[in-house]
């Protein structure tokens, strides 16, 4: 009888428990250690293998709804890449605020390092069309992004002149919500052979395991 009661518990009690569970760590952080999972370790090791001067494309494919989960990932990945002196090309394919988050986060992290814009990193901004610009960047990144996020022409920027297409990129890392991570794997990894890593929200993680197992992705999220 007691179990039966527990099964039909009022949803407001569940809401209250969720609220308490969410509020306690905000009010008083517990500070539990975070153990990296195997796919996360896989991406860490891939970045460690990069040489100074190698190029990585970092795509901000999420909006404000996924910021709490994906901002820490973008910060950790950017710091790691810049510590390794890897050149970073930032793009945004997600239409609902990806570019605004990219501007804020890139400015925040790059301010911690001694970097030259257009040489060590560039923010190319947002391009509409989803898979269309992804595919077109396989031919020429500069054709897809003739100007950067501040509408400065990319022609003459050393990083853009040097990194012409996916052939010059070691890894594409996307911080993705929805289906965009799958597009990068299906299109960019499968057709151009570039390593793809996806930092995703927890709710999207299960579907990426199929790509991870097939070798189409390096990683699927920070736990």
């Amino acid at each position: 009888m007691k179990i039966q009661k527990l099964l039909y518990i009022d949803r407001r009690i569940i809401y209250l428990l969720v609220a308490i569970g969410a509020l306690i760590p905000i009010i008083r952080p517990i500070g539990l250690p975070v153990v990296p999972s195997a796919p996360v370790q896989g991406l860490f090791e891939r970045v460690e293998e990069l040489e100074p001067g190698d190029a990585v494309m970092l795509s901000f494919d999420y909006g404000p709804s996924s910021e709490p989960e994906l901002n820490p990932m973008s910060a950790a990945i950017m710091r790691h890449l810049f510590m390794r002196e890897v050149r970073v090309m930032v793009v945004a394919i997600f239409p609902l605020g990806g570019v605004q988050i990219a501007i804020r986060e890139v400015a925040r992290i790059t301010s911690e390092f001694d970097l030259e814009y257009g040489v060590d990193y560039v923010n190319l901004g947002y391009k509409d069309g989803g898979q269309a610009p992804m595919k077109a960047m396989g031919v020429s990144i500069q054709d897809v992004f003739p100007a950067d996020v501040e509408t400065t022409p990319t022609e003459g920027m050393p990083i853009v002149e040097d990194v012409r297409n996916y052939g010059d990129i070691e890894v594409v890392i996307t911080l993705a919500t929805g289906i965009i991570g799958e597009w990068w794997a299906n299109l960019v990894n499968a057709q151009f052979g570039v390593d793809v890593a996806v930092g995703c929200t927890a709710v999207s993680a299960p579907k990426y395991y199929a790509y991870l197992r097939s070798g189409q992705m390096i990683q699927r999220g920070l736990q």
Partner: peptide
């Protein structure tokens, strides 16, 4: 974007946590 779109989207997603748990 910072004061309307961002908090609205965050609110929508936060509410989901309650519905998903239930």
């Amino acid at each position: 974007f910072e004061n309307a779109v961002s908090p609205l989207q965050a609110t929508m997603f936060s509410l989901l946590a309650f519905y998903v748990a239930s």
